[in-house]
Design a protein around this nucleic acid. Sequence first.
DNA 1: CCTGTGACTTGCATTTTGAAAGTCATTGTA
DNA 2: TACAATGACTTTCAAAATGCAAGTCACAGG
Lengths: 114, 114
Amino acid sequence: MKFKRSSCPITNVLDTLGDKWTLLVIRDLVLGKRRYQEFTSSPERIASNILADRLKKLETAGLIARQAYQRNPVRYEYLLTEKGEGLKPVLEAIIVWGKKHYPGTKRFPRVEHR
Amino acid sequence: MKFKRSSCPITNVLDTLGDKWTLLVIRDLVLGKRRYQEFTSSPERIASNILADRLKKLETAGLIARQAYQRNPVRYEYLLTEKGEGLKPVLEAIIVWGKKHYPGTKRFPRVEHR
DNA sequence: CCTGTGACTTGCATTTTGAAAGTCATTGTA
DNA sequence: TACAATGACTTTCAAAATGCAAGTCACAGG
């Protein structure tokens, strides 16, 4: 097996998730968001080109799946795969540490779907 | 309280740790590394300017402390603060997920000190 | 025909990253 | 006394990533 930087598991995780936006998209998915506009309307205001890029990379990495929810015209939504769901404990650990060290921060609530 | 991007704990954590290098420096510290050359000699080969930048930011963020270990000439080493130590569960969760999804990766061993 | 919606794409300026080489004080070696 | 080595950085500059604004494309409704 050949690794990009090293055989460290942390390093390899950072190669896919190590930036300021990717984990926020995962967070939104965990909270129940599925559609493009839902992601762009999160308070961090991700730029649409960055979002498109991250969705593509996450799909390639097998963390999310793109699925049409209607035809004429076809529209897509995104869902976490099992691999993506597996990141929940990582997010949990980050939230625990984050809430402790950034006073005033608060876990975001799940979003409702029809 | 005023936040850079939002009041989400994950977002605020990413504002300090969300890149490809910062967590690797933390990893090295957790493994027992303390000195500049120890960090640059890790297999990921961090560039010295990036390392200097990250050490400065981590110190500012209160995750590490810089301390002289000799005079004439003065030399420094870095140590995790309690806040920095608190990240261990985050690293643990990442390692668990990483080892599962990147076959062949393996937790790095602690380094020895004289 | 005109407006709106959803999911993007394009263009371009600003910012960050990365590789390589340089600095500076002091110590050890010849 | 000169010279190489060590440790902890700093500087330079090109390449890549980010961010903002605007544009596209297919269809639906009025």
